[in-house]
């Protein structure tokens, strides 16, 4: 009787192990989940921790994240301290040696690319600054393509049999990015410029060579005061452009400035859905770029 129980237990364990033969990937935000699925293809199973409609700066470590990380073989994060408020605590609470920072099972996309704004003073009087540079690379298809190759190599370390396929997937993703960006650049040509709420679309706008008029936040992470909004309006009077606000940021400040200046204020998502594909990702980028076209 006792023996049978053990056999059953063994059988169960074996089944569990077979079931997780796919690389168990946990991504922090949905766009990174998209990248992981794109690079990993059939060989990975991806789970995303952050809901798509939330500011990844301000999430909280949840037990469900720890449960996901407990069984993960690799965590794919944006990095650059974007997730510093919750990811370290979630990893700490997961009791999983594979995903500890420094292990192959801990991946930061921001560490694989060049960040803009790096080396700014680490002084919080200047707001919630990121001395490593702007971490919002998840809205930059080109940097994701670069990070994709690094991720493919990392996946390859964990699943050597699939390594070549991962590189091929990264290549395919990069080619897609190249083609899409070429079209988007043509579309964005001559765009008058964008006023952002936060420094989160800087990479995309720089890649498309679209000027950034400024930021509704006076300092990163600091909400605008009425006087700051008025001074923005004064300084932008007579100019043309569009105001971009992410779907988790307050829309009223952008709408106010839009009314005052006669600019269009748009609020759109910055992350695909939890199961979003590369098509969804470019549809999202396309929606942003579509707003650049002036009516005049």
């Amino acid at each position: 009787m006792k023996m049978q129980v053990w056999k059953l237990l063994f059988a169960w364990l074996v089944l569990v192990n077979l079931a997780v033969a796919e690389l168990n990937v946990v991504a922090t935000v949905p766009n990174m989940g998209m990248l992981a699925r794109e690079i990993g293809g059939e060989a990975v199973q991806v789970r995303v921790m952050a809901p798509p409609d939330r500011d990844a700066h301000y999430l909280e470590a949840r037990p469900s994240m720890m449960a996901a990380l407990r069984r993960a073989e690799i965590v794919v994060s944006v990095g650059g301290e974007l997730e510093i408020g919750w990811l370290p605590a979630a990893i700490r609470g997961a009791n999983n040696r594979l995903v500890q920072p420094g292990q192959p099972g801990y991946f930061e996309a921001a560490a694989q690319v060049h960040l803009i704004g790096a080396g700014r003073p680490a002084d919080r009087a200047l707001g919630d600054v990121h001395p490593h540079g702007n971490p919002h690379i998840y809205l930059d298809p080109e940097r994701l393509a670069v990070a994709g190759f690094a991720l493919a190599e990392r996946f390859g370390e964990l699943r050597p049999d699939e390594a070549e396929q991962f590189i091929a997937n990264a290549q395919r993703f990069a080619e897609r990015v190249e083609a899409e960006m070429a079209e988007l650049r043509v579309q964005a040509e001559g765009a008058k410029g964008v006023l952002l709420y936060h420094e989160d679309a800087d990479y995309l706008l720089k890649a498309l060579d679209v000027p950034i008029w400024g930021y509704i936040e006076p300092l990163p992470g600091i909400p605008p005061s009425a006087s700051h909004l008025r001074s923005l309006v004064r300084s932008l009077e007579g100019e043309q452009g569009v105001i971009w606000t992410m779907n988790f940021q307050p829309s009223n400040a952008g709408e106010f400035i839009g009314r005052e200046l006669g600019w269009r204020a748009v609020q759109l998502p910055s992350q695909v859905s939890a199961t979003g594909t590369v098509d969804d990702y470019f549809a999202m980028i396309q929606a942003w770029v579509d707003t650049l076209e002036q009516d005049d």
Partner: peptide, 20 residues
């Protein structure tokens, strides 16, 4: 592929992680 080249070039300077 240019992105691949960029990745290789950049990974020379990039640290494996940044947070913390």
């Amino acid at each position: 592929v240019p992105y691949r080249l960029r990745s290789l070039r950049l990974s020379d300077r990039a640290a494996p992680l940044t947070t913390g």
